[in-house]
Design a protein around this nucleic acid. Structure first.
Length: 555
RNA sequence: GCGGGUAUAGCUUAGUGGUAAAGCUCCAGCCUUCCAAGCUGGCUAUGAGGGUUCGAUUCCCUCUACCCGCUCCA
């Protein structure tokens, strides 16, 4: 899809979301708030359905996973142990030339291995600049390699500043490098961009964690954070769950909940938001050594073998693979085609320091193929961290193996809001429809899987000025209402009402007509028209059969 | 945070330094025997703040939000 077409498609989806009440801008009447979105009536139903299906597939349909619902604000030490306090607050600089965003504290490290920076260091033995060598480089190789470098642009003027420098030169050449990077003699000293040698802006703090204060005093000691992920709560409560539920490794703890990140750039509608919801599972497994000791071997990965039935001799690799496959199956069950998804194995240099392997499940959004879920093999990093920081043992006693160990973990971690957006993108279609008169028109329809559709069935009396039809329609509504989300509508022509439900993604509509109330003979009495959203076909169904028929389709 | 673009009704668009226009949607009524029919009536808008001006939706500035890049990994 071209950029133009994909942007237009995305705009249409955003517009539909607002028009029909799926997603609104947060605080819209005050101008909105960057990175925050609300779900309207239809969106709220859609999201509830999705979360419910995930929760059900994790907890109720399995006997090896239990649920948890923890608080958003936790002890600040949790985030020190997890590493978030360190990794989520970086000073950042932007390059004025190439506009890249760089972590300020990594600039000097990055320059260590940069060829052009090495050339500059070569022209300054022991950190003491050699003006002739520098000038030669600036007018030759430097000019070709890093034309954005301030020194290359004005070698003579900056060399004069180097000569006027009276303080000591440091052996790493940082003082020299800063003078060479700074274009404005009157301004503060700059750092060079490791990518293009352009001038970097002043470091600015980027705190990705939202801070708040616990208690009214609001002093430094009261600082707490809104959780940037739900996973840590699971690790923190690991012991309590083990002690209270009789679970045995391998087992999982799952949680759905809000998380908060002060993103640099919220973008792409709800895709990257500052307040978002996660569905995370931490699946605890035996360390490979324990599996080895118990079963004599750790099963090796075989590319063609299915990994649908867990085995006692599985090590982390097979458990990881198992969860990747499970998660793909689940995405297909809520209506994302396998062909719309991609599986991406992170390269070794992309892996977080704690991860042995991470697979991303990506969805082909109109704005690009982007991550819905990451499935990480995290070893026992997190539990060990919390053991160290809290001083409390996170060891599990394995009766079968007669061993004590800190379990390893496989973490499938999904973004709910991203999934909702993917479902909307997947479902959205503008169809050309030709009517009886040969006129073509556009039918906007959301092809949600009935399982996730916000409204399951629309219920219409064919005509609203015929009390018998209305009365019967209300009876049908009351019959189905306790079982599923129904929408009763008697406004406008019947075709209009069908189309309204198409835009809402309602898979079924029922029309109560004169046959239903027995005007055309007893054999048709008690039947209604069941209209299907995707095919627009109709069938005749007995009212008495509706509950079972519809329940089968939506569950 | 940086660069580029955009901002008029619920949606899509028009227009103007002097009363803001239309289509669709929505609401009410009439009509209507299965795919956005018709008739009548109705609600609703210049993102926020400041400046220039007798007068600003229009010109200028600031802010905010959205879209596209840099960045990001739920």
């Amino acid at each position: 899809m071209s950029t133009q077409a994909s942007t237009t498609r995305m705009e249409k989806i955003v517009s539909l979301c607002k028009r029909r009440g799926f997603i609104f801008q947060s605080s819209e009447i005050y101008g909105g708030l960057n990175g925050f979105w609300d779900y309207g009536p239809l969106g709220a139903e859609l999201k509830r359905n999705v979360k419910e299906l995930w929760w059900k597939s994790m907890t109720r349909l399995r006997d090896d996973i239990v649920g948890l619902e923890a608080t958003i604000i936790m002890h600040p030490k949790v985030w020190q142990a997890s590493g978030h306090v360190d990794t989520f607050s970086d000073p950042m600089s932007t390059c004025r030339a190439c506009k890249k965003l760089v972590r300020s504290d990594q600039v000097w490290d990055m320059l260590e291995t940069t060829p052009w920076a090495q050339a500059v260091r070569d022209a300054a033995p022991e950190g003491k600049p050699d003006p002739e060598a520098l000038l030669k480089w600036a007018k030759g190789k430097g000019l070709r390699a890093v034309p954005n470098f301030a020194f290359v642009k004005e070698p003579e003027a900056i060399l004069a500043r180097v000569a006027a420098h009276t303080a000591d030169w440091d052996a790493h050449g940082q003082a020299l490098m800063q003078i060479l990077s700074t274009a404005d003699a009157a301004g503060p000293l700059a750092m060079p961009c490791p990518h293009c040698a352009g001038e970097l802006t002043e470091p600015r703090p980027f705190n990705l964690m939202f801070k708040t204060y616990v208690g009214p005093a609001a002093t430094e000691e009261d600082i707490a954070y809104l959780r940037p992920e739900t996973a840590q709560a699971i690790f923190v409560q690991f012991k309590n769950v083990v002690d209270s539920t009789r679970v045995k490794v391998p087992f999982g703890i799952c949680q759905i909940g809000k998380a908060f990140r002060n993103e640099v750039t919220p973008r792409n509608f709800t895709f990257r938001s500052r307040e978002f919801e996660q569905m995370e599972l931490e699946f605890f497994i035996k360390p490979d050594e324990v599996v080895q000791a118990q079963t004599g071997s750790v099963a090796a990965f075989a590319p063609d073998a299915p990994h649908t039935e867990p085995q006692p001799n599985w090590g982390w690799e097979l458990w990881h693979k198992y969860w990747v496959e499970e998660r793909f199956r689940w995405y297909e069950s809520v209506g994302l085609k396998r062909s719309s998804l991609e599986e991406y194995w992170q390269k070794p240099d992309e892996l977080a320091h704690y991860a042995r392997a991470t697979v991303d499940i990506l969805y082909k959004f109109p704005f690009g193929t982007q991550e819905l879920e990451g499935i990480a093999a995290r070893s026992n990093f997190d539990l060990t961290q919390h053991q160290t920081h809290s001083g409390k043992s996170m060891e599990y006693f394995d009766q079968e193996a007669n061993l004590r160990y800190v379990p390893h973990v496989i973490e499938p971690s999904a973004g709910v809001d991203r999934l909702i957006l993917a479902l909307l993108c997947e479902a959205f279609e503008e169809e050309e429809v030709t009517d009886e008169k040969g006129q073509t028109e556009t039918r906007t329809v959301l092809h949600f899987h009935p399982r996730v559709a916000p409204i399951k069935v629309g219920i219409f009396p064919l005509l609203k000025n015929k009390p018998d039809l209305v009365k019967k329609a209300i009876e049908v509504r009351d019959l189905l209402r306790p079982l599923m989300n129904v929408f009763y509508d008697d406004g406008g022509a019947i075709g209009r009402r069908y189309r309204r439900q198409d835009e809402a993604g309602t898979p079924f509509c029922l029309t109560i007509d004169f046959d239903t109330i027995g005007e055309n003979g007893p054999e048709k009495e008690g039947t209604v028209t069941l209209r299907h959203r995707d095919s627009m076909t109709q069938e005749r169904v007995r009212i008495a059969d509706l509950p079972a028929l519809l329940m089968a389709k939506i569950s």
